[in-house]
């Protein structure tokens, strides 16, 4: 008899794997990317591709030079790159995308020791870095194309730009002439991956059905934002337009795809609920009283920092205690 494997129990395993999870999340984000290409033209496609490729190259090179195992196939770097690109304007210059991806993977993830070790969502680390260094480029949002014009223009920084609905709201524009329907479909300025709510929800539904994410974080997050935006409306208490708050900005993208990041969110459902409510409150606070029109990225990053503490206080109650 040849050598028998002697390993510790259990000797069975689910067919779940890290790569399967990561690539499923990746796939679930694709509808939003396709929608972005329809809305902003080929420029969006180039930003997405460049984002993913530079994240992969960064991770590969870092692992190579640190003599670590190259783990590009686990999908986590690709996902980081994809998420970063979704958080950029479609008309970003190419170097902005590359720097963002590099920063996300290097500072956001590898510095901490790689997959599973990072405290902050890598894509958001990249985004906030870019926001700090190049605010001009990060807030210069391209106007959605009118049927095919400029479709093939890439890295089109000089495109006709438009303020995002949240920017308009922040500036105190009384009437924002955009319908909920247009918000839902994404026909307005904004980061390329966040605008089309319809496509994002399709992807989210897939993840929920496949049980890769649970409803706890996204639903509680969104509900908290809705409730607080309604309470602290611009025309007095309990007058806020909660539907507008939910549909505009990066909330849907953030709630379903970034706050749910396993590595940087709490382990237990109880912890996740606290985490999500915290994200919601911080988002509204930043949107209403902070210096930026949008608060999703900062809110999630702040709650990422709180995750170890939340974990400590929300551990499971041991059976029989």
């Amino acid at each position: 008899m040849n050598k028998l494997t002697v390993s510790y129990s259990p000797h069975l395993h689910t067919n779940q794997s890290c790569a399967k999870i990561m690539w499923s999340v990746f796939a679930s984000l694709l509808p939003a990317g396709i929608a972005a290409i329809f809305i902003f033209g080929a420029a969006a496609l180039w930003v997405i591709l460049l984002g993913v490729i530079s994240a992969l190259v960064t991770e590969g090179l870092l692992q190579y030079f640190n003599k670590k195992k190259i783990t590009l196939s686990d999908g986590s770097a690709a996902l980081t790159g994809l998420l970063l690109s979704y958080n950029l304007p479609a008309n970003s210059p190419w170097w902005l995308v590359v720097i963002g991806s590099f920063f996300s993977v290097f500072i956001g993830k590898q510095i901490f020791g790689g997959l599973g070790q990072n405290i902050f969502n890598p894509a958001l680390v990249g985004r906030v870095f870019l926001m700090t260094c190049w605010p001009k480029y990060m807030t210069n949002f391209m106007k959605p194309l009118d049927a095919g014009i400029n479709f093939f223009k890439s890295f089109n920084y000089d495109a006709v730009t438009a303020a995002t609905p949240l920017m308009m709201a922040k500036e105190g524009k009384a009437v924002i002439d955009i319908s909920y329907w247009d918000l839902f479909l994404g026909k307005h300025g904004g980061c390329l991956g966040e605008v089309c709510i319809l496509a994002l929800l399709a992807g989210a539904l897939f993840l929920l059905l496949k049980k890769y994410i649970s409803w706890h974080i996204p639903i509680i997050y969104i509900a908290t934002v809705g409730v607080f935006s309604w309470i602290f409306g611009s025309k007095g208490l309990f007058s806020g337009d909660f539907l507008f708050s939910i549909l505009s900005g990066g909330l849907i993208l953030g709630a379903f795809f970034m706050a749910t990041d396993y590595v940087t969110s709490p382990l237990t459902r109880k912890g996740q609920a606290i985490f999500a409510a915290g994200c919601g409150i911080l988002t509204v606070v930043i949107r209403l009283w902070g210096g930026y029109p949008e608060g999703v990225s900062y809110a999630i990053l702040m709650m990422n920092a709180a995750t170890p503490i939340i974990d400590r206080y929300t551990k499971n109650r041991i059976f029989g205690r």
Partner: peptide, 17 residues
């Protein structure tokens, strides 16, 4: 061996919890 895969880092998916 049904437990073929190499051990990776914990991605904090929470399944075990």
């Amino acid at each position: 061996d049904y437990l073929l895969g190499e051990e990776g880092p914990c991605i904090r998916c929470g399944s075990c919890v």
